[in-house]
Nucleic acid binder design. Structure first.
Lengths: 219, 219
DNA sequence: TTGTCAATTGTCAGACGCTGACATTAGCCT
DNA sequence: AGGCTAATGTCAGCGTCTGACAATTGACAA
């Protein structure tokens, strides 16, 4: 038997996997509690207790009480940014953004499911929107993300973000549409990943002709 | 001697004036400490102690630690909204917004000075921009204000905010410009009220032709 | 297998934000 | 002057978050 080499399975050693499990469990428990009884009404102690770890351990996984609420969003965003930087340079900015979103949604579906059911993710979305503290963080996070995306777009096109306003404007419009799509999805009854994919697609179709001009050819 | 009616001076009785003085003192002390040593590094106890009141009293004037940082902004906003609702119905939306801002800046200058020096207000502005927690609140406050303004504009024009997107779009553009103007002012060297007034004016000149169409006449 | 090393976790103490309850003080009004 | 009420202080306590140290547990080599 291959006892000496215990399969070097998909992800690292026992330690890594255990950590991942604890983290996922904390997210699941937190979102369940938040959506069940409200964010303010839930204490970090409750979350920790539900996963059977100490409060201190919770704070070693998440910097504060809010962060756990955005853990899934962070996964999606990271996946999106990764995909965006990988898009071929030939694509025009809006197409690159659009493609990146689509790819991100595609393989994030399974990634999310491995942590929490999509339905819980949607409830979380609604919970965030109706909790002032979380709305504030959400807006801040969004503006930071926008800034990073604008930087990437400018880089692709060889522009200076500070000098040329077009990257920021395009990204602002794009993110605005994404935000609306997310909001509509959150309010609707269909919580499948497919539905938000389609929603995004149709919304983006509207701005494509409006702001999707070519930045490089002279015209 | 008119002992019985001790002059019923400018503002209410002794009680009122005393309260106002305590409030102003708290704002001054807080902003001074925040800008001096940083927001996170300042405790509510320090603020209270600087004004020689108990911590409990601070929390009777401000709901939380953040709120005191936005006290001056709130004055400006309140003045602006007041002025906006008072604008003649004949004015088109963008003109009304523009005029309201100008009037608000005019008599807010003196109002601010009575509480804190403008220079401190500017330092506060910068401090907010560089403090994540406060950036978050600031964004949330801004979005709430935008929503209220959009409601007022829709009301003026007899439109339904939910059905017609134009009020929200106009207000978004307007507030976007205001935000940029504020940011530029905060970074610049001139901290006079006159400078932000002019800045705002010139920035607004740029969007007027772009989005300042007539909504009522058929065109 | 066993022992060493390093990472993970638990426990404890404490700072800080914030709130309810109750006593005390101080302006207001007759 | 004296009662009424609003403003303040004091106290106790909950919840978030952090540093320090000890205990546990996986990793890796002898």
């Amino acid at each position: 038997m291959a006892t000496s080499t215990p399969q070097t399975s998909p992800v690292g050693g026992l330690r890594e996997r255990k950590k991942q499990r604890t983290r996922d469990a904390l997210i699941r428990a937190a979102l369940e509690l938040f959506t069940e009884q409200g964010y303010e009404e839930t204490t970090v102690d409750e979350i920790a207790e539900a996963v059977d770890v100490s409060q201190r351990t919770y704070f070693r996984y998440f910097a504060n009480k809010e962060d756990v609420a955005f853990a899934v969003q962070e996964m999606v965003e990271a996946r999106f940014l990764e995909e965006l930087t990988a898009r071929p340079a030939a694509e025009d900015p809006l197409t690159a953004l659009r493609s990146a979103v689509m790819v991100a949604w595609d393989d994030i579906g399974s990634a999310i499911e491995s942590v929490i059911p999509v339905e819980l993710h949607m409830r979380t979305y609604r919970m965030i929107e109706s909790t002032p503290t979380l709305v504030a963080s959400h807006l801040r996070r969004s503006s930071e993300l926008e800034e990073r995306i604008a930087g990437l777009i400018a880089r692709r096109e060889g522009l200076d973000v500070e000098a040329d306003p077009r990257p920021r404007v395009l990204v602002a419009a794009f993110c605005g549409v994404m935000r609306v799509a997310g909001k509509v999805w959150g309010e609707g009854p269909d919580c499948s990943v497919a539905s938000i994919r389609e929603l995004t697609q149709s919304y983006l179709d509207h701005i494509q002709p409006a702001i999707g001009g070519d930045w490089r050819s002279a015209r």
